[in-house]
């Protein structure tokens, strides 16, 4: 089970990141859940200074930009185990 967190207060880029993750995983057989973290205090815990942030199983994999679909899939493969 892969836990994916989207860190961001709900701005445009956070929504785009979430969509990108969902699109990347449409054909994927793995089980996952997506949690949106919108509270600034909770976001700050991850130590990022620009949003949106992407977290997989509690590891920050990117922040401040929207990664490409292929890149997201690579991380998914890396962290799902």
């Amino acid at each position: 089970m892969l836990t994916i967190k989207i860190l961001g207060s709900g701005c445009q880029n956070c929504k785009r990141l979430e969509q990108e993750v969902r699109d990347a995983l449409t054909d994927s057989p793995i089980t996952y859940e997506i949690i949106k973290v919108t509270d600034y205090a909770d976001i700050a815990v991850y130590g990022i200074m620009s949003t949106p942030g992407l977290v997989m199983n509690e590891t920050v994999v990117s922040f401040g930009r929207i990664p490409k679909r292929q890149q997201i899939l690579n991380w998914v493969n890396e962290y799902q185990s």
């Binding site: 207060s9 709900g10 701005c11 600034y40 976001i43 700050a44 990022i48 200074m49 620009s50 401040g64």
Partner: peptide, 11 residues
Amino acid sequence: CSCSSVPLFIG
């Protein structure tokens, strides 16, 4: 991006 100014402030 005003949504990033808060995390940066906290950081």
